[in-house]
Every structure is written in structure tokens, then in C-alpha cells.
Design a protein around this nucleic acid. Structure first.
Length: 888
RNA sequence: GGUCGCAUAGCUCAGAUGGUUAGAGCGCCUGCCUCACAUGCAGGAGGUCCGUGGUUCGAGUCCACGUGCGACCACCA
């Protein structure tokens, strides 16, 4: 094998193995290969995206699952691709155009789309290239894009089918309108600010038409009064009974509008009278419908007052608000202004305040689609991890509202509807028509709008597999097994995929959904560009390595909880990779003549093995079970930490040290057995760890002096526990031995005896704790003792420093013969004096009220800690000095 | 307003179905460049498991209430 460097250098290793894997076709899933299969589809990142820590966690988990199942021998498909991300991408390209002094309208639709495609070709695969750096073992030969011809065909088919089924319709109603994006949005894209935003509640008098006082209405959006066509009060509200059926005068516009009774009004809120603006509020629209009040639109699509707004025409909506309030005040009609938390919705993409706007849009009737999706989760066909998302999902599903799918954008799937100039009928078609399907007129034109991005994403699990053709891929890999995604797209994507899966494939698109943690900064804030708290994963990979980043984030992300991350946390994973690297170096250095894989460890050899070897093999079986169980239950962090503790805390800290006894000894047979166990355990560890840290495990595995059974660790079988190698007796024995070693080391440290100074030890066994004699060779090495004597049960040397070890007895470390007890005693006495003096002065300091009151809190805390440490040391010294004094 | 989650060492977090002495990493203190590793080794300090009450032989773990954070949903103008 080649010489390994002292520290692991990920940069030189990672690219090499990634290319190796790809060149060997290991990422490719062959649908013709028989056997069990496993499939995951990637949540397609936006083409505009670049890798964030959220992607890192999400895709590391998918890769772990994929690599685990691939090693389990399954035909494994991880389907990659990107989403065209309608609004997001259009925004990016429009911004680029703006820099050239252009906008999409001057370019025109066709040229603009050419520009977007050009942009997509150039930058659209950035994020997928970045995923490769992370080690993602996606089947890149199958890369898909939501606007690929075959996926577009699926979108078109779905639209037509739903239209023919009566589940897609054009509706005239209030929708969420973004005045900046100039488009309708779905309910999910309209984000409510938590707890509302600062605003006011204006109380405005609408005088009666006979000059009477009329009513006072309360509103948070006074500018909409320009479009008021009524005032509503509760039918039983005695205060307004005399006004019902009469008119009041709309101020500023001087229009008479009726006072009408409606149950939707809460008499207890505000004044109990509500201005009704059917064109600019969803509730008011409903009230208007019930009372035949005409909606009066007073705003343009870019948020300015239109011709219906009289004197306010042309003003921006918020400017109009100010002017209207001022004018009302001037006319003495503004009764009251009170500060108020106003519920506001903002555009998910650009944060602009959304305007409820009356318009014609395309909708999907969702209720029929929701039925099987509700049944799926109730019956257990579909499972969520963690389970608590079931409630959120069901609440949304059972209260589902129709989905507004039309967007007034250019980038996306054009709505396949044609209008006829000669008849009122619509032509909805799978292929672009040349004539009206009803009257045959050639004067037809296509709907200008495109579909919501999610209208293609919801088909992702089968559109990527070639649907609507019944492809071999689809037959082999649909439905998929697990979906790993962030919970913030549970409605946007997960819920709708379930509905689409049942509607078009007749089957749930996946069995399990795992919701990942949200990655936050160390203060618990969401990562965002504006806060600058979002580490660049590529930078982290460059500094610490992809394995380090993956392992760090995965081990820190518990099921169902958020995870906090800052780039230097990746030191955790880097140090671990380096630890394994060096354990491997140690193995290599001692493997000059090792046997083949066949002579590695089998259960038949067990009786021949020494205690440490039986122990580590036994522990390896337990760990194998634990890791598998954790992975099968999607407890990724638990699996990672189990491996971390085993590899570092048991294999490296104890087994490697114990193995030196034999490796540096002169029994060739024992040496050979130890080598064999060492190599076997390391090899199994690498396999267990490979899904988490693919690069470093491959690099080491390839260097092992074993004839490989496969060309890569990534296609080697994932370990299965061998019951014959379990050894509870060895487990218990080594645990006791470790306790003895620790006790002796502790005594040495407390007495200040250097680790290089040889001492002797004596053990007084507790009742039932016999057999400590077999530990002798190991204790000699690990605790640096020259001899271990077992004392008679009743013997307790009073003058020898000792420690009680549970399940073992009392361990004594006699000084005579090793060091001069008088010298130790003198040293401890001197230290005791110094400690006492220090303790006194610290105590004095802490006793001064002005210090405690005036010094910074952390300084006081530090002094307190120092006092505690000194007191502790003082007690230890006292104890040992008492023992030593008995000896002289 | 409704639903849900969280609260454990200075910090970030583990602790399935309740069961001996509550763990890890980072940080801190002491001593070490010991022939795999200073990205390391050895030893150590540090916790009224948010509060109150309850169930139980036994509660960090289950129940109720409270407090403090956080998330999601909802047409209160």
C-alpha cells in the first residue's frame, strides 16, 4: 500500500474518487437488474439556486440512505434534477436585463424566453455540480428539468385531463395579487407576517343620505373605500336597525351606498359596521355576492388608483392612503385613529405587500383529489417522520381550498387553452390547435398565462420517470420509497404530490416522508443572505472536506428538531475523519504480511482470540445492529453518533492500544490473529461509515492490504451482525478492566506521578469479582504498572493511595519501590500550602461585597469556579496526605 | 383565535416503550510533541434535568396546570 500522510487531506482525495465512482457507473440504476429496489427522487432545487446549508443537510441524508440501500444490495435509484422556478428565475433574468437597460416588454415574449433559456443553459446546473462536491450519488444520466419536453408533455396532459374531468375551471374571484411580480399567487405563496404588522385602524364616518350622522366604519385600508359599494352590519344589531335598507354617502366620492345586514359582521369588533369593497377583499366579495353589490375595481395591476378613483387616480396605493386619511380629517369625517396590528400578506418571492384583487384565474378543484391523500395517511400507507406532521397535513387536506394555478408570467408552462374570436368556446388541447374545436374558426389565440411552478413539481415522482409512457423505469421504480424534504414545502409540494400520485398513477408516490431539520445559525436565526449568517458550503468543503461537513451536520441534526450550524463546527467532522485516517495508518504500519480477506475473522476463530479481540468483535456486532436500526428508523444523527463513539472511544482509545501488546510482542501466531482482527474491524468500520463519509472511507478501504471483492467500497455489502461473535462475558470483562486502568491513571495524576514512571498496583477484589489476574498483561501496558498483585479479601493496606472501582474492588498503588514516598509527601504538602493560600485569597475576594457587586458577572463566576477547583484539589491532597502520613 | 413543538453541564445537543452512579462534542482546569493521530493523549471540574402538583415501589422520561421560547394554520373589517 501507499504511504499515508500524517493528516488526511480531503481536497486531493474527493475529486478523484467521485470521478472513479461516476466512471464505473455506480450511480446508475439499471432497471433491468433483478432484485429488490430502492428509489428516492430529489426535491428539485431551483435552477437559480446555489448550495445552501439546507441543501447540504437534505442531500447528505438522501445520499446516506441511498448509499446504505445500495450497499444492502438493492437496485438503487436517486433521481436528480432541477425546477424551472417560474417567478424566481424570471426575476433573476429580469434583473440581469435591467443592468443592460432592457426589460422584458421591450424584448417581447419570444426573445425574453430565449434569454431565460440561455441563462438556464449557462447557470442552471450550478447547484447540481455543487451537489457532486458533496458526494451525492445521484443517477446523473437521468437528470431532469421540469421544462424538459417529456415533463412538459406530462404537465399538458394533466391539465387537459383535469379540465375534461371538470376539476380545472376559470374563476372570477379575489386572489392574492403581487403588484411587483404582476401576477396572481396561490394561497401558499402569500405569506402572513406573524402577529400582524404595525398599522392603524381608522374610524370613518359615512353620513346618512338625509344628513343624519350615518355610520362609523373601521378599516385598516382606507384607500379601498374608493371602491366601497355598501356598508354591512349584523342583522340583529339594534344600533343600526333604523339604517338598514337606507343609504349612506360614501365620503370623498359622494356616492350613495346601501346599508345591508350580513351575518359575517361581528358586532363586537370596531364599530360593528363594515365597509364593503367587493373588488378588493375576499370577505367583502362574498358579502357583495349575497347582496348583489357590484364589485368596483379601483386599482391597476401595479398598485395604483385607476380611473374609478376620482381625484386619487394615478396615485400609488399607499400614497393614496395618506391622502385619503388627510382629506377625511380635513372634512371632519375621521372619527378616530388607533394603532393596530394589521394582518398583512406578503409575496413569498419578493416580499411585496399583496393586494387582494378581483380577477379571472384558473383553479384546480382540490377536494376530490384530497380524498385518497387523506386516506393514505390515515391507513398508514403513507408515513411521516416525525409523525407530528400528520396533523398539519390532515388539517390542510381536510380544509383544502382550490388552487390558483395561473400566473401572469412568461417563464413556465403555457396554459394549453385557446380562445376563439368567433365564438365564446374554449379549446383545451394536448396538441397546439390551429382551429377552434367548436366553430372551426382559425382566429384563435392561446391564453397568455403560464402555470404555477408547482403544477409541474407535483408530478415529479413519475414525470421524471417518463410518464405518461409506461416506461421500464416507471414500472421498476414507481412508487418511490422515501422522500426527504424540508417541512416548509409540505403543502406546496408533498401534499400535492400525494394527490397527483393517486390521481394519475393510482398509487401513493412514496411510502415514507422524512422531514429534515431547518439549519439555523448559532443564535437560532434562520439563515439568510441579508443577515450574512449563511456559511458557504463550498467554502466549508474546501476548508474541512465534504465528509467533515456531511458528518458534522448529520450528527447534529436530530429528528424533528432544528439544527444550529456555523462553519467552524465542521472541525468536529474533520477531526473525526483525521482520527480514522490515523487509526488506518496505524493498521497499515503493522500489516506488512497480512492474510487475505478469507483468513480475516470468522466465527470459528473465536476461541483462539484474546480477550480484547473477542471484546472488539463483540462490540462491533452490537454497533452494527444499532447503526442499522437507527438508519432504518431515519435516526441519522443517532447512527452517526453511535459510530463516532465506537470508532473513537472504543476502537481507537482502547482496542488499538491493547493491540500493541500483541503487535509489539513476540508471539507470531498472536500477532497474526491481532492483525487479522484489527484489519477486519477496520474494514467493517469503513463500510458502516461509508454512507456518512464516502470519500475518506473509500480512500482508506482501497489501500487496505486485502484482495477486494468489489472494486469500490460503495458497492461492498453493508455489514450484518454475526451472532456467533457476540460475547457478553468479554464485554463485561473489558469494561471492568478499563475501569481499573482509569483508577490507576487517576491516582497517578492526583499524586503527580509521571506516566513514564513505572509503579506497581495491588487489587483487593470485591465479593464475586475474581479473575482480575487475567487483566495483568493489559494493565501493565495501559496503566504502566510493572506488576499486579491480588490481595486477600480482607487485606486493605492503610498507607497506600487507593481508589474503589465498582464491580472490581479497591485498587492500591504503593509508592515504595517506584518513587520516594517522602518526596511525594513533601511535594504534596508544598502544593497543599500553596492551594490553601490561594483558596484563602480567593475566598477573601469573594467575601468582599463590593467585589461581588461591582465586578463583571463573568469575572465573579470565574473566581467562584476557581475557588471550587481549589477546594476540590485541597480535599484530594488532604486525603492522599493522610494516607501517606500513615506510612511514615 | 386554533393546532403543534421545545425547555437537560458555560455553549450546541443526545437520552424509544419510566428502572442502578443522567451522556457526547465544543469550551474550561492540570499534565503531556508517549514510536497512528497536538485535527492528538491522559486526568479533572461542571447538572435542584424550567416551576408546581399528581400517577408509581421508582419520573429527566407519564399526566395536569403554570412560565418562557418557537413553528404552523385562520376571512375579524
Amino acid at each position: 500500500m501507499t504511504e499515508l500522510n500524517k493528516t488526511y487531506d480531503p481536497a486531493t482525495v474527493e475529486r478523484r474518487w467521485y470521478e472513479f465512482w461516476q466512471d464505473h457507473g455506480y450511480f446508475h440504476a439499471d432497471e433491468n437488474q433483478p432484485g429488490a429496489r430502492f428509489c428516492v427522487v430529489i426535491p428539485p432545487p431551483n435552477v437559480t439556486g446555489s448550495l445552501t446549508m439546507g441543501h447540504v443537510l437534505n442531500n447528505a441524508l438522501q445520499d446516506i440512505l441511498i448509499r446504505y440501500q445500495r450497499m444492502n444490495g438493492k437496485v438503487t435509484l436517486w433521481m436528480p434534477g432541477t425546477d424551472h422556478a417560474g417567478i424566481a428565475t424570471q426575476n433573476v433574468v429580469e434583473k440581469a436585463l435591467a443592468k443592460e437597460g432592457l426589460d422584458r416588454h421591450t424584448l417581447g415574449r419570444e426573445q425574453f424566453l430565449e434569454r431565460v433559456w440561455g441563462w438556464k443553459e449557462k447557470y442552471g446546473s450550478t447547484i447540481l455540480l455543487q451537489l457532486r462536491r458533496l458526494g451525492a450519488s445521484c443517477d446523473w444520466r437521468r437528470e431532469r428539468f421540469t421544462m424538459d419536453p417529456s415533463l412538459s408533455r406530462a404537465v399538458r396532459e394533466v391539465f387537459v385531463r383535469l379540465y375534461e374531468k371538470g376539476l380545472i375551471y376559470k374563476g372570477h374571484r379575489i386572489i392574492h395579487w403581487c403588484v411587483r411580480c404582476q401576477s396572481a399567487l396561490s394561497d401558499e405563496e402569500a405569506i402572513t407576517t406573524e402577529g400582524g404588522e404595525n398599522g392603524s385602524l381608522w374610524h370613518i364616518r359615512y353620513p346618512a343620505d338625509d344628513g343624519g350622522p350615518g355610520v362609523v366604519v373601521a378599516t385598516t385600508r382606507p384607500e379601498t373605500m374608493l371602491g366601497d359599494t355598501g356598508v354591512a352590519v349584523h342583522p340583529t344589531d339594534a344600533r343600526y336597525a333604523t339604517l338598514l335598507g337606507r343609504n349612506v354617502i360614501l365620503p370623498l366620492m359622494n356616492r350613495p351606498i346601501p346599508v345591508i345586514p350580513d351575518d359575517a359582521v361581528d358586532p363586537a369588533f370596531g364599530t360593528g359596521a363594515v365597509k364593503v369593497t367587493p373588488a378588493h377583499d375576499a370577505n367583502d366579495f362574498d358579502i357583495g355576492q349575497r347582496h348583489r353589490l357590484e364589485p368596483l375595481c379601483i386599482m391597476t395591476t401595479d398598485g395604483r388608483i385607476n380611473d374609478n378613483g376620482g381625484a386619487y387616480r394615478g396615485l400609488d396605493r399607499f400614497e393614496a392612503r395618506k391622502r385619503i386619511v388627510a382629506d377625511l380629517e380635513a372634512q371632519g369625517l375621521l372619527v378616530k385613529t388607533e394603532p393596530y396590528r394589521v394582518p398583512v400578506r406578503r409575496c413569498e418571492r419578493c416580499d411585496t405587500i399583496i393586494e387582494p384583487y378581483l380577477s379571472d384565474q384558473w383553479f384546480v378543484r382540490m377536494e376530490p383529489l384530497a380524498k385518497p391523500a387523506i386516506e393514505a395517511i390515515k391507513s398508514g400507507r403513507l408515513r411521516f417522520y416525525p409523525e407530528r406532521w400528520v396533523g398539519v397535513y390532515l388539517h390542510w387536506m381536510t380544509n383544502i381550498r382550490d388552487w390558483c394555478i395561473s400566473r401572469q408570467l412568461w417563464w413556465g408552462h403555457r396554459i394549453p387553452v385557446w380562445y376563439c374570436d368567433d365564438c365564446p368556446k374554449l379549446t383545451v388541447a394536448r396538441e397546439d390547435p390551429t382551429h377552434c374545436a367548436y366553430c372551426g374558426s382559425a382566429k384563435i389565440h392561446q391564453d397568455d398565462d403560464v402555470l404555477d411552478t408547482w403544477f409541474s413539481s407535483w408530478l415529479w415522482p413519475f414525470s421524471t420517470m417518463g410518464w405518461l409512457d409506461e416506461t421500464p423505469t416507471l414500472r421498476r421504480f414507481y412508487p418511490t420509497d422515501t422522500l426527504i424534504t424540508a417541512a416548509d414545502i409540505i403543502f406546496f409540494w408533498v401534499a400535492r404530490m400525494v394527490m397527483a400520485g393517486y390521481e394519475f398513477m393510482g398509487e401513493c408516490p412514496f411510502r415514507d416522508v422524512f422531514f429534515t431539520s431547518i439549519v439555523r445559525d448559532m443564535q437560532g436565526r434562520k439563515m439568510s443572505k441579508s443577515l450574512g449568517n449563511s456559511p458557504d458550503p463550498l467554502q466549508v468543503i474546501d476548508t474541512y472536506g465534504a465528509d467533515a461537513l456531511r458528518f458534522t451536520i448529520v450528527s447534529a441534526a436530530p429528528l424533528g428538531e432544528d439544527v444550529r450550524f456555523a462553519d467552524d463546527r465542521a472541525e468536529f467532522g474533520r477531526n473525526f475523519a483525521n482520527k480514522i485516517w490515523n487509526a488506518a495508518r496505524f493498521c497499515m504500519m503493522n500489516m506488512e504480511a497480512v492474510g487475505s480477506r478469507q483468513t480475516a475473522v470468522g466465527s470459528g476463530d473465536r476461541a483462539m482470540l484474546d480477550l480484547p479481540e473477542r471484546w472488539i468483535l463483540s462490540r462491533l456486532q452490537a454497533v452494527t445492529d444499532e447503526v442499522r436500526a437507527s438508519l432504518d428508523a431515519y435516526r441519522f444523527n443517532e447512527a452517526a453518533m453511535t459510530l463516532y463513539r465506537f470508532i473513537w472511544g472504543e476502537f481507537c482509545d482502547w482496542f488499538v492500544e491493547l493491540s500493541k501488546l500483541s503487535l509489539y510482542g513476540d508471539d507470531p501466531a498472536a500477532k497474526q490473529r491481532t492483525r487479522s482482527v484489527l484489519l477486519h474491524t477496520l474494514e467493517q468500520i469503513l463500510r458502516l461509515l461509508h454512507p456518512f463519509m464516502p470519500f475518506v472511507t473509500e480512500e482508506i478501504w482501497q489501500a487496505l492490504p486485502l484482495p477486494p471483492t468489489t472494486d469500490s467500497i460503495m458497492v461492498a455489502p453493508y455489514p450484518v451482525a454475526d451472532d456467533a461473535l457476540r460475547d457478553p462475558a468479554a464485554d463485561a470483562a473489558v469494561t471492568r478492566m478499563i475501569d481499573i486502568v482509569r483508577a490507576i491513571r487517576n491516582i497517578r495524576a492526583e499524586l503527580g506521578i509521571a506516566p513514564t514512571t513505572a509503579v506497581t498496583a495491588r487489587i483487593a477484589p470485591a465479593a464475586g469479582a475474581d479473575g482480575v489476574a487475567v487483566f495483568e498483561p493489559y494493565l501493565k501496558t495501559l496503566a504502566r504498572v510493572t506488576s499486579i498483585d491480588v490481595l486477600a479479601a480482607s487485606e486493605r493496606p492503610p498507607d497506600e493511595p487507593s481508589a474503589v472501582v465498582p464491580d472490581v474492588g479497591e485498587v492500591f498503588v504503593p509508592l515504595r519501590g517506584a518513587v520516594d514516598p517522602a518526596e511525594v509527601r513533601k511535594r504534596l504538602e508544598n502544593e497543599f500550602k500553596k492551594v490553601s493560600k490561594d483558596l484563602q485569597s480567593v475566598d477573601a475576594k469573594l467575601g468582599r461585597p463590593d467585589f461581588v457587586a461591582k465586578a463583571p458577572a463573568d469575572v465573579v463566576e470565574k473566581e467562584r469556579a476557581r475557588a471550587a477547583a481549589l477546594a476540590e484539589r485541597s480535599a484530594t491532597l488532604t486525603r492522599h496526605l493522610e494516607t501517606l502520613r500513615r506510612g511514615s
